[in-house]
Design a binder for these strands. Structure first.
Lengths: 242, 242
DNA sequence: AGGTTTGATTATTTCGAAAATCCGCAGTAA
DNA sequence: TTACTGCGGATTTTCGAAATAATCAAACCT
């Protein structure tokens, strides 16, 4: 499971939260799985209350759903959710990019290049199967984050981060079946170039295409996974007020 | 405090969650307040673990912040946060309106009119101080929700709802100092008319103005409250990655 | 035979005590 | 005086058992 071995720093519940989040995103805990307390207690070596706290927070992040008095389960995946998620991500990411280009300074530009370089180097070191690596995924996430960090909006960044993580779960679902990923590195370089050139419109369009094409790839390679669950696939009730 | 007395239906933690959320939004629990467990245990008549679960969820909703191993406190307010919140709300709400107008059907239109009517009637019944009423606030929330419910995006609606609640806290902060609110009902009617007429551009602009003017009113009447806390006011560190 | 109620089993939810951690203060040394 | 260190009290965090609710199946009634 998760290889995070940092007992210090924060609370134990916070540690379990981070590990569970990682395990859900990486699909070590599969979508739709019932989360039984006894099982989890063994897996993460903590007690009921601590688990409950971690689960509660994951519910609010949308990675776990709570069913009345019938426990928790890993948030199911569906074609509908993936498409909806993609549309919302495009909206948020375009705004982030726009603001970041408006407000970013030299230090921001340098940070982007540094992050790209690290991602790029690891990519060539890992070869064709880089997309399976959790380390690469972390650097990939850091690169995309560095592009928008200068937007200056904590709220926007927080929303973006949660959506990014949920989307990562879908990417991860499909990656184990995908023989080879397309040349994302070229796209990343183009996005970086347009962002640093402060070419807002083009940068936004490139990022939107980047997101949408990834979603299309996921659907092409992993859509058969959505049907297996039985429930929660296809169109959801659109009047799902909270 | 909260007058919600429905012990049945959901779990006790869910009940406490709802009551605390209500109390924070209505400023019965003031921004920046330290949330001591002993105090809360008396207030809500539950035990540590149950409180902890409710608090954890509120953290993820942005209404409470957790400080390492030093407990929880009601999320502080600040001019910076209010402005940021407003900008993000405008982005989200404009998109919701656009999609709802695209996708809404007759039933949706009827629902909007019904909600407006209920809000409008209560408003005239309450007279000049309607903005102090929690009941009116609930109907006001329901009206705005009905405008966008047809957007068909669960993710968008969920984000919108959380932002709306956080904004409501700011509205509430200022309402106790505001001698009289401007004629919001006229604005609401105009928004409804343009939405039902499927006049997307105008409806979006009206909603944006509605949100921004409310924020300006809050700042005009309650900005002095932001300074009292001492910390967390004015510009925040823009590189506040999570 | 089909459907419903009852009761045993399993899982979740809640509780309050015990362990771990933090904060303030006094005492000491530089 | 200022900075560092160790103790006492208060608060948070964690734990596992007890209470509560849901599930499943067998027996019962229609």
């Amino acid at each position: 499971m998760s290889t995070t071995l940092r007992p210090a720093g924060e609370t134990r519940a916070g540690d379990v939260l981070a590990r569970m989040r990682s395990d859900i995103i990486s699909c070590a805990l599969k979508p739709g799985t019932k989360l039984r307390f006894e099982t989890l207690k063994e897996l993460y070596e903590v007690s009921f209350s601590t688990l409950r706290e971690a689960l509660s927070r994951l519910v609010a992040e949308g990675l776990v759903v709570a069913e009345g008095q019938r426990g928790f389960l890993v948030a199911p995946v569906s074609l509908f959710d993936l498409n909806d998620l993609t549309d919302v991500r495009v909206l948020i990411e375009r705004q982030c990019i726009r603001l970041a280009i408006d407000r970013g300074d030299d230090r921001w530009e340098a940070d982007i290049m540094a992050n790209f370089h690290r991602m790029d180097r690891l990519q060539s070191r890992l070869g064709a199967s880089y997309y399976l690596s959790d380390d690469w995924a972390a650097l990939h996430g850091a690169f995309h984050f560095s592009l928008v960090v200068a937007c200056g909006s904590p709220n926007l960044l927080e929303i973006r981060q949660k959506l990014f993580e949920r989307a990562h779960r879908y990417r991860r679902m499909s990656s184990q079946f995908r023989p080879q990923w397309r040349a994302k590195d070229v796209e990343h370089k183009m996005i970086m170039d347009r962002v640093i050139a402060r070419d807002t419109a083009t940068a936004q369009d490139l990022v939107e295409r980047h997101i949408r094409e990834t979603t299309e790839n996921v659907i092409a390679h992993a859509s058969h996974l959505f049907a297996q669950g039985g429930d929660s696939f296809g169109r959801r009730d659109p009047v799902a007020a909270e």
